[in-house]
């Protein structure tokens, strides 16, 4: 293993560049913005790629992964906390994403408080959610709704279909990040 930060994954500059450019184009299309400090942002992309190699998914580079997708589903980038943090602080927790006012130079990006609940609370919330999902699954549709409604937990997109889409058409989050809404 080589010395240095996240170096053991052997991620090349070219890879980081490629992913950065692809991600930037994709988020701009959906109305989001990456941090305009390109060096900073590329460091975060390198961290995401390192976490992909280590854990198999884009765990937030600024949070400790549980190495378990079910436990980390809330912190897979883009995380469930991104949009509220963009509203309150102008940046997400790791500052990969920033708000319009930061892009316009009207707001500074800084290190912000952690919004993710502590572990015990998250464990309890997951149990509750499972119960809720089971309840929803057995719920019958009588009259009012012709289809179940699914909510993307990353961006809030709603759709009425028999199942959630494979990928969120707005933010590209995967199917497992949808919850039954109605």
């Amino acid at each position: 293993m080589k010395e240095g930060e996240a170096a053991e994954e052997n991620i090349t500059e070219e890879e980081v560049d490629k992913v950065y450019r692809r991600l930037n184009a994709q988020v701009e299309k959906s109305g989001y913005h990456l941090n305009p400090d390109v060096e900073f942002t590329k460091d975060l992309v390198r961290g995401l790629l390192a976490n992909e190699q280590r854990y198999g998914y884009w765990s937030c580079p600024c949070r400790l992964s549980a190495n378990n997708l079910e436990e980390d589903l809330d912190i897979v980038c883009p995380c469930y906390y991104r949009d509220p943090d963009l509203n309150d602080y102008g940046a997400c927790y790791c500052a990969l994403y920033v708000s319009d006012d930061v892009i316009r130079g009207e707001r500074e990006v800084e290190s912000i408080p952690e919004r993710r609940p502590p572990r015990e609370e998250r464990d309890a919330a997951r149990v509750e959610e499972k119960k809720r999902t089971e309840m929803m699954e057995t719920m019958e549709f009588s009259g009012e709704l012709s289809k179940p409604v699914w909510r993307c937990k990353v961006c809030g997109y709603l759709c009425a279909m028999d199942e959630p889409p494979g990928v969120c058409p707005i933010c590209k989050a995967k199917k497992e990040r949808f919850e039954r809404f109605m």
Partner: peptide, 9 residues
């Protein structure tokens, strides 16, 4: 810190 975290860096 975390080796992947830019604020830690």
């Amino acid at each position: 810190g975390l080796s992947t975290c830019v604020w830690c860096k």
